[in-house]
Design a protein around this nucleic acid. Structure first.
Lengths: 253, 253
DNA sequence: TATTGACTATCACGTTGCGTTATAGCTTAC
DNA sequence: GTAAGCTATAACGCAACGTGATAGTCAATA
């Protein structure tokens, strides 16, 4: 049984915060003394930990309350999702650090930075997307009475498909990244590329060699692609493009 | 000279935020049109970048205003300090990720976590300390009367490729959009599509019919494309895809 | 030329997540 | 029994915008 100050010091939050959480029903202590002192149990501490995790993800207190109130709230699955978000946050921070470095360089060398470059790492759209997706999943999973009404966008594919291509794309990028030191003709790289083409074929359309080659070109030709791909690693787009070309050459020779 | 929305999109902040920054004197645009429209220069963008950096460090807007108002504000030194803070933040995130991992393990294995363990990574005192120290240093440093000329940096470089494809893409989208009521086989639409293919061929690579058809498929198959294209108009991606298919059919019949 | 539609502007109140007094009761320690 | 240190509730304050409401601007069509 902990009193407010003890909890406050353990968790690094203010007493006022605990009061606040109590008053909005987010974290109501298990019991109180006759004098009205709040008494927190271990379970309360666990719940507080949950709350702080969600806060770190920038969920609002109301959202946190809703999520935690679900009877079938899956703590483990949630934590795993948390971790993903944290990793994304970390990635964003790394980008930001990169931007800082570049800015310093541009001051040193007098080189110029493109307007868009200046703001790299500030944009949180990716994280927000993930959060939206996550909150949707959470609603589907935790919310029996909450009826989904969203889906206003007329997309040719469902969010499930989107998740699939997203995951596969990420997987391919990772596999290729890991082997960037070995050249485009490396067997692991080539396997990844082959899988990539197979995935497109299975999932979308008959991806002929010609189309595939064109796609590879696009990766370096279209800055929108290049930018996106290079987020996963400097020079990945160019390398991937080369690997795809090599692959196509092998297939037609 | 950028208008509010342009700046907003470049930097990933809301228009309201820019209004706010103007109203509190944090980021006052260099000039306004006779109608009162805010016009931002490159220098304003640089200042905005600075502001966002400081915001990332969790300085208040008032503090940011004070720091930036110092005549001898040393941009480079500040950036270096930023970087340190970012690295600390990253460390904290890593700790948090660790805590998540441990929590997951403790659920799996049923082992218990010490109360203190549970909250590792949440405490920001270290960062706060650094900030206090930093702000003190800053005060000492910027408090001097020394006046230094603000570095004048030349205007930003915009990639020619990017500008070109961007412009052409926009043009094609616009031309197609205008004729969406007329069906994919409309002659203006078909002309736009033909120009599109020609542009790709001229500018990037020999865009064969097969590749072009594949590209058209991609517009509806890959949500990343669909989303992007549909920004220019609801259903544009699907329509454009159809038009491209029709075009390819005509070419091969 | 008139009319859209997409921008822009300025109020001005609403919201979140607490901080910050202010006032008062409880609980040990001497 | 009184001081020090904890606790309580209550109520206002505040930053940093969000969210309309209402109205002026501007370029491109009908």
């Amino acid at each position: 049984m902990y009193k407010v100050k003890e909890v406050s010091e353990l968790a690094g939050v203010s007493v006022r915060t605990l009061h606040h959480y109590d008053s909005i029903g987010l974290l109501v202590p298990a019991s109180t003394t006759p004098a009205g002192y709040r008494l927190y149990t271990e379970m309360d501490l666990e719940r507080l930990q949950q709350i702080l995790f969600f806060k770190e993800m920038e969920f609002s207190l109301q959202e946190i309350k809703n999520i935690l109130s679900r009877s079938d709230f899956d703590r483990k699955a949630t934590l795993k999702n948390h971790k993903e978000l944290l990793l994304e946050k970390k990635k964003r921070l790394e980008e930001l650090i990169n931007t800082v470095d570049k800015t310093i360089d541009s001051i040193d060398g007098g080189s110029k930075m493109a307007d868009k470059e200046m703001f790299k790492g500030f944009d949180m759209s990716e994280i927000e997307e993930h959060q939206k997706k996550y909150s949707k999943e959470a609603k589907e999973k935790y919310g029996k009475e909450t009826v989904e009404k969203v889906e206003k966008r007329t997309s040719a594919y469902t969010s499930e498909d989107w998740g699939n291509i997203q995951a596969k794309t990420e997987e391919i990028y990772r596999r290729v990244m890991e082997r960037m030191g070995h050249g485009p003709e490396d067997s692991h790289v080539q396997q990844a590329v082959a899988d990539w083409r197979q995935f497109i074929t299975d999932y979308y359309y008959e991806c002929t060699i010609d189309i595939f080659r064109g796609l590879g070109d696009l990766y370096v030709a279209d800055p929108r692609f290049t930018k996106n791909i290079d987020k996963h690693g400097e020079g990945l787009a160019a390398f991937l493009s080369k690997a795809m070309h090599y692959y196509c050459d092998q297939q037609t020779k």
